[in-house]
Simulated assay, not measured.
Amino acid sequence: MNETRRNILKGLAAAPALAMSPNPLWAQAAGELKISHQFPGGTATEGDFRDRLCRRFSAEIAKRSNGALKGTVYPGSSLMKTNAQFSAVRKGALDMTLVPLSYAGGEVPETNIGLMPGIVTSYEQAVSWKKAEIGKALSNILADKGVLVVSWIWQAGGVASRVKPIVEPEDAKGLKVRGGSREMDMVLKAAGSTVLTLPSNEIYAAMQTGALDAAMTSSTSLISFRLEEVGKALTTGRGKTYWFMFEPLLISRAVFERMPKAQQDLIMTVGAEMEAFALEGAKADDQAVAAVYQKAGGKAYDMTDATVKKWQAIARDTAWKDFAGKNESCARILKLAEATL
């Protein structure tokens, strides 16, 4: 771990006390943090929980800094295009983003571990990553690339289809499917699908026009993007699923390191506090999504342990091998992730 990263982490132990006490350092860096994401906008109490999390985070840092540090949320990619956000945060051109980490796979191959099919199969396992060796290694890689994790957020994945339900791997044969990551696409191709690559906020239009038959995305996105209007068959992520998405709240390291330590500590303290809210929101949407699709006239299907193992077996032979073969760093990341299974 480099010295700068070590110093960042060392100060976090004292964060709660610093964040709640008056500190003259607030006056040194009064300002606004721009927080961009691709999801529909709402309020602090209504709408997509990822947008609500960003708004709660913003309100809390403003409150605890007596207004010296504020956050402004830009939903729906209104500030910046979805696929540009991670790169902009790396360069310090954007302060913060909440984004599926796998969207950064083209720039930082290791980040594809955040949507690696079969590697995470429960929320309990997902939550354990933060303090496990895999979490430390991933944090260090991101820090070296100019990005720091503020909140660890995980969501279970499901499938919306306008043709037929995709539950077993054989159900995907012959369909045009959006997987959401290079690794998920490899699994789908092995199952006989044609894959399309596009961010989740473009799924609706693609399914509406028939360019896409089915899409894999989080329960929250299945609801927020109203996919029940274009896909009546739903495979839920409740109970059992073969993939989870790591969708963290991130901050630019360049922006972070320009801030006084009291503000750095405040950001990390509030970010950690948001994780319980995120977990609750993700689990609630896993349950709610089935009712949404059924109300729209669709059908909801759940997976069994046996089904999850089928998908996982395909992933081991395709995506896992490909990922580990990229470089030594990816191989190490995969090994550390497997240790949490």
Rank of each mutant, 00 (worst) to 15 (best):
Y242G: 00
M274F: 09
F246H: 06
E257G: 09
M216K: 06
L227W: 09
L227S: 02
R182L: 12
T220P: 01
A233V: 11
E202W: 11
F244L: 08
M186V: 11
M268D: 01
A290Y: 07
T241Q: 03
E247V: 13
P260W: 03
V177W: 06
A296I: 08
L227Q: 10
G174C: 10
K189D: 13
V255Y: 10
M245D: 14
G239I: 02
L279N: 02
A278F: 06
Y242I: 02
Y204P: 04
K232H: 10
W243H: 14
S221D: 15
E273T: 00
M207N: 02
A288S: 13
Q208S: 12
E247Y: 13
R238A: 14
F256L: 10
G237Q: 04
A190Q: 07
G179A: 11
G174F: 08
A262M: 12
D265R: 14
D286T: 05
D213G: 05
V177C: 07
R178S: 14
Q208N: 12
M274K: 04
A276Q: 11
D213Y: 02
K283A: 07
D185P: 07
E275A: 00
V255L: 06
R258W: 02
A172Y: 03
Y242W: 15
R182Q: 11
A282G: 06
G210A: 13
D285G: 09
S252M: 02
S193L: 01
R226P: 09
L279Y: 04
G231D: 00
A233D: 14
A282N: 00
V187G: 03
K261L: 13
W243G: 13
Y204A: 10
T241S: 07
P260M: 03
V255Q: 08
S181I: 05
A284H: 13
